[in-house]
Nucleic acid binder design. Structure first.
Lengths: 133, 133
DNA sequence: TTTAACGTTTACGTTAACGTAAACTTGGGC
DNA sequence: GCCCAAGTTTACGTTAACGTAAACGTTAAA
């Protein structure tokens, strides 16, 4: 079984970004695709990393933060000290995420209100129209 | 009853930003504080706007998006056409927010996993220590 | 064989969101 | 009267995250 690889434009299409973006991520050390001669070959692991990067960006993380987040998954934690600092990182990350969720929920409530007012207003002008006939 | 106002450094302290940031927001047309001679006087409405801006920023909105979002609240919607486009805006905004919530939930699950592995690993090394005595 | 589609490197340009510094005014405390 | 803290304007600097353009290699189809 040969591991499936992807070209750069495959991934660009799939994720709705430009090839420039993907090369930029490599330049910044976020991904490390293999090479076949000059050409880059992206493994499925590379693909997943890109996906995780874009997910991070959607909620406003910088690229640096995205890597930091992704790197929490792989074990560079040898001793207990590093483990503890990782746990601390996890904790503060979680708090930030929860704050963001609260922010989003507040904004969603706001949208509900606005939409309610809109529909009400539309309904009113609709009744007016009918009465006018 | 005199409406309470705030100085620029009051608000900077309250929100943990610099005065430069607040002036920058004004320069960009996001807020419009009154003046007492040269000095800016911030009403409570100004304060709220800043709060909403910072909330938007926390989930990765640009300043432009923040204004757009805030402006949905006040009624510049006279005719039915504008009303409908506002409703459309609300819809797409809601979808983006929901996607962000999904992203956050996924990341929170990831953090749970990482933390689990950490604690497990810590527990193991702790048992090892005990066995060594 | 040429051309079209895809790939590459190198490098300069751009936008957003402030930081930082200089130079000035202004109101209150000693 | 003097000084200091807080305010002001003006303007150049900085970082992130790409966009855009030039100039070039490769391969498969017409």
């Amino acid at each position: 079984m040969t591991a499936k690889t992807h070209t750069i434009s495959d991934l660009a299409r799939e994720f709705g970004v430009t090839t420039r973006t993907i090369r930029f991520y490599e330049e910044k050390g976020l991904i490390h695709p293999l090479r076949e001669g000059q050409k880059r070959l992206y493994s499925n692991a590379d693909r997943v990393r890109i996906k995780l990067i874009l997910r991070g960006k959607r909620i406003g993380m910088t690229l640096r933060e995205c890597v930091e987040f992704i790197d929490m998954y792989d074990p560079e934690h040898n001793n207990a000290e590093q483990l503890q600092s990782l746990i601390d990182d996890v904790k503060s990350r979680r708090e930030r995420l929860l704050q963001q969720k609260r922010d989003i929920d507040d904004m969603l409530s706001g949208l509900d209100e606005v939409q309610g007012l809109c529909e009400e207003s539309l309904a009113r002008s609709h009744r007016k129209k009918l009465a006018h006939t």
